[in-house]
Design a protein around this nucleic acid. Structure first.
Lengths: 238, 238
DNA sequence: TAAAATCACTTGTATATACAAGTTATTATT
DNA sequence: AATAATAACTTGTATATACAAGTGATTTTA
């Protein structure tokens, strides 16, 4: 199934350099090739290279110093749930296992939800699912995902074990994640969290309420993520 | 005391539009003037306008749609401690009061700290301070700030009441904040937090460990922020 | 020899231009 | 009147170019 989408060249440059940092072709602490050299390498002009580097700076892969060059910082450490790509890519799929608690099913919206829903979203109802995610066999994330029930054929019958929700949305429905907003708070564990995380009542748990924006206008995903940060803390750049 | 720094025009465009969104000259839900119109308005070219808009998109002030325009999203709601500018600008200085718990003083580094320090940083020692911050008279943030003791004359004798640390660093020492990395976790309140937040022992509190990068190479600020999220949650974009 | 000036590099800012591609209103067609 | 084509907008991508400004090594000067 070819997408037919042409990949912009700044994206190619970004992805390649990112991969090279990941694979330690460009090693931590060293200087990246100069912008001019990258231009020659990728047959693009400086603004294009700079757009790619800007993204890498934002995500913490590199750091720039005027007059000196771009220093490779390496892969952002920790669990980068605050980044756009979601949990899976951030800590490496190898160490993340997913267990479905509630299979995707059509429901009415939880009215206790934090974000205001549009009338259209309320009408549609939502696809609801719950997942528990393990990092190195420890339950670390418990997440509730709600997606407006808008023209996503066969969605509820798909398998999500060890698959990224975002990947499925992109491949089968051409939905791209573009960013989002989130609330972050600390709370005590309730019965559900006690059960899944194996902690005492009131144990401090991180909660994230997220509204995720997509390439489809007025189409948002909603998720509530609970994290047990006892062993794995969240990490982010700003 | 004139800084002598020339402000880049993309910055001027960014600041002006940002201000206009804040002052509701550009109202939420409406379309921003087109990039072309902004070019005429500010006497700059499109790449310059786009650079300003990119920053506004990143911070959640606007959202762009190809073929349509840039939609004004309004001021990012909540307490945007995850953003680069710090607490003060995020919730509006009017509602934030600061109380100094420990005045800036020279100390050796807390060795229990999370980030690895360089030898140079260890030698220098650090300027240490503790602050309690109130939002609408409620104690919400308790933060410990550590700054390498590197050529910051008279720093320990300055007043920090209701002043932004970042502003002081910029105005008096020409130190600009460029970004940073942070860990986020949920933890139970200890005796100190109980005292300042007026909560029970073990009450869930958000903790942020931050390393803040500056325009001076190898000069970082370190801070540990504790947040009582019972009434005011943190907010961020990704 | 030590300090100052220069040069060659780096990234930062800005312009001018072109075309691709998505959206919306208008116009022409059926 | 409903539909299709078009035109006029919008943002997205990309090039080519120029100069400013920070860094570090080299060369010149005192």
């Amino acid at each position: 199934m070819a997408t037919g989408h042409k990949i912009p060249s700044y994206r190619v440059v970004y992805e390649t350099i990112r991969k090279h940092i990941q694979d330690e072709v460009y090693k931590q602490g060293t200087l990246l090739p100069s912008e001019h050299d990258l231009c020659v390498l990728y047959h693009v002009t400086r603004p294009t290279v700079r757009k790619a580097l800007d993204a890498l700076v934002n995500e913490g892969y590199i750091k720039k110093h005027q007059g000196k060059g771009s220093i490779v910082m390496g892969i952002p450490k920790g669990i980068g749930i605050l980044s756009i790509t979601g949990t899976t890519s951030a800590i490496g799929q190898d160490f993340l296992k997913t267990k479905i608690i509630v299979k995707p099913e059509i429901r009415t919206w939880k009215n206790a939800f934090i974000f205001k829903l549009t009338e259209r979203e309320k009408e549609l109802g939502c696809i609801y699912m719950e997942r528990l995610r393990y990092v190195n066999s420890n339950p670390v994330f418990y997440d509730i995902t709600m997606i407006p029930n808008l023209n996503l054929p066969r969605f509820t019958s798909r398998s999500f074990e060890n698959k990224s929700l975002f990947d499925i949305l992109r491949k089968h429905y051409q939905i791209e994640i573009k960013g989002g907003a989130q609330q972050i708070l600390a709370r005590g564990a309730d019965k559900t969290l006690q059960k899944y995380f194996g902690v005492k009542k009131g144990h401090p748990v991180l909660q994230l309420n997220r509204r995720i924006e997509t390439n489809r206008i007025d189409f948002y995903l909603y998720s509530q993520v609970f994290c047990n940060t006892d062993e794995y803390v969240l990490y982010g750049r700003f």
